[in-house]
Structures are given as structure tokens and as C-alpha cells.
């Protein structure tokens, strides 16, 4: 498309570039502000001198956070949760998605099964009955309460089954003729061909488990069982110092600005997401397209 741009058009284009740059800055500056706060000195923060660059550079907040037992413990809970949750979610997602990707003529109860799963996306028992089930199963204050209630992520199942369906049918027919059963077909043929969708769903799962905070708040009576997200929720959002800080912390906090400590913890909580973000970005595009555009 050849276009001769007039002065007006050029001005409009410069305007679009500026506007989009501004929009992107609005997205990123709050994050930079928090990062700058976490690396600034107490005096600078109290004098409201910190904007988007650390003032009187200091890593004191991080030193303080690094020896905070509750914080470190919650990271360990989160790591366990992500590991166990990833394993359970991926296994169940694949095992549910594969049979559902079959045609009804090959798997007669497929439609019934599919509705059983999809119905849970449309209707739910809600907060209290779910809580009571988890409680009655004796899972309060255990890691299981964080991973089992969401063990079958229906949205991911749908992404995966759409991907399985897009694989060439001839491959499966050929495997069947060669005497290959469903388990072998899934393990030897389907899964090796599905690495992109498995990576997509896996990353979604990791991010989901790392970010999820509500289950920790309601299912854990004792805050030592909190995953990091729930721990951050109580200290960052509630701002209830009495709940988290013992007396030693309180004296330390006087010399160290609470805002810097909070900022440091927020940044550390988001750090794993920043780390997987480049991979997410590569994969989620294909994931989204899989989920939304069908012929």
C-alpha cells in the first residue's frame, strides 16, 4: 500500500505514537515506583522524594525481608503448592481432554461427560458449601486444600481438547491399525505432538497457583500455612501491623520505613511472574487463539 503522507497525516501518526507511549508508561510506571521505593532509604521515602528512581540507594528493606521467617516460610508453601498443583492439574487436564477430544461416534458417552464438566463453569455451589466440603474432608490447614478443589481446570481442558482435535486424524487411525491402544496412543503419539499446548497450559497453571490467594485465606486457620500470595494479602492489603509483626519486628520497623518493606515484598512476590513472562508471551497468543477461534 503506497501512501503519500500529508503534513496532517504525519502529525496524526506522531500523535498515535505519543499516545501509545503514554498508555504504556501508565501501565509500567506504578511498577517502577514500587521498585524504586523498595531500594530507597527511609529518609528519602519519608520526605516523599522517591518517584521512579531509587533515592539514597539502600537494600535494607531486602535484608529485613530476607530474615523474616513468615515471609520465607510462605515462599516454601508456595513452591510446594505450585509443584504439586502443576502435577495434579496437568495429569488431570490431559486425561480429561483426551477422551473428550474424541468424536461421539468413537466415544458414545462423550457428550454426557462433556456436559458434566462444562456445567461446572455455568453453575457453582458457591463459597460456603465448597468451604464446608473442604472442611469436612479434613483438609483445612493442609496443602491439599490449595490444590484439590481446583484439580480439574475446565478452561485448560477446553484449550487442550481443542488442540488435540486439531491434530491430524490419520495419525491416530494409523496407530490403531498398528495395534496401539488409547493409553499408548496418548503417551507415544499425542503428547509428543502437543508440547506447545502443554507448555501454554503449564505456564497458565504455574501463574495461577502462584497468584491464587483466596483459598489460603479461607482454608488456613494458622497463617504459618499461608502461601506467599495469601501472606502478602494479609500484610500488604490489610495493613494490620498487629497481626503480622511481633515486638522485635516493630522496633526494627521504626528504623526502617514500612513502605519500603512492603514494596520489597510486593516486588519479590511479582518477581517469578516477571521471570516466566517472556515465555508466557511467546505461548499465550497461541493458547488464546486455540480457545477462541474455531472454524
Amino acid at each position: 500500500m503506497v501512501q503519500h503522507k500529508s503534513a496532517l497525516q504525519r502529525t496524526v501518526y506522531v500523535g498515535i505514537y505519543c499516545l501509545l507511549t503514554l498508555v504504556a508508561l501508565v501501565c509500567i510506571l506504578p511498577l517502577i515506583n514500587v521498585l524504586a521505593l523498595s531500594f530507597s532509604s527511609n529518609d528519602a521515602i519519608q520526605a516523599d522524594k522517591v518517584t521512579f528512581w531509587p533515592v539514597e540507594f539502600s537494600t535494607k528493606a531486602y535484608h529485613f525481608v530476607a530474615q523474616k521467617k513468615a515471609f520465607l516460610l510462605s515462599i516454601w508453601v508456595s513452591i510446594q503448592r505450585v509443584g504439586l498443583g502443576l502435577l495434579i492439574n496437568m495429569v488431570l487436564t490431559v486425561l480429561v481432554a483426551y477422551p473428550l477430544s474424541k468424536e461421539s461416534s468413537h466415544f458414545r458417552l462423550r457428550t454426557l461427560y462433556a456436559w458434566v464438566f462444562v456445567f461446572t463453569m455455568l453453575f457453582s455451589g458457591g463459597l460456603v458449601p465448597t468451604y464446608l466440603i473442604v472442611k469436612n474432608l479434613g483438609m483445612l490447614d493442609t496443602l491439599w486444600a490449595l490444590v484439590l478443589p481446583g484439580a480439574v481446570p475446565i478452561f485448560n481442558v477446553i484449550l487442550m481438547l481443542n488442540f488435540f482435535r486439531a491434530l491430524p486424524k490419520e495419525l491416530m487411525e494409523a496407530s490403531f491399525i498398528d495395534g496401539c491402544g488409547h493409553w499408548k496412543l496418548l503417551w507415544k503419539v499425542i503428547l509428543p505432538l502437543s508440547t506447545p499446548s502443554i507448555a501454554t497450559v503449564g505456564l497458565f497453571t504455574i501463574v495461577g497457583h502462584w497468584n491464587e490467594w483466596f483459598a489460603g485465606i479461607i482454608y488456613m486457620n494458622d497463617s504459618i500455612h499461608y502461601p506467599l500470595a495469601s501472606y502478602l494479602q494479609t500484610i500488604v492489603v490489610n495493613l494490620d501491623i498487629s497481626k503480622i509483626a511481633n515486638i522485635d519486628d516493630a522496633t526494627y520497623l521504626q528504623s526502617l520505613n514500612d513502605r519500603a518493606v512492603r514494596a520489597a515484598q510486593i516486588f519479590l512476590g511479582a518477581l517469578p511472574i516477571f521471570c516466566v513472562y517472556p515465555f508466557l508471551q511467546r505461548y499465550f497468543m497461541s493458547g488464546i487463539v486455540l480457545g477462541s477461534v474455531k472454524e
Partner: peptide, 22 residues
Amino acid sequence: LHLMILPGLLFVLIFSYAPMAG
């Protein structure tokens, strides 16, 4: 195929359908 779907089905029955009854 039924065997594959069974574990997922059990989890959904316990954590989605039982609360509906609740």
C-alpha cells in the same frame, strides 16, 4: 477412555457437585 476420565470426574463430583447439593 472411561478410565482416563474417571479421576477428573471424581474430583469434579466431590468439589463441584457435592457443594451444589450443599
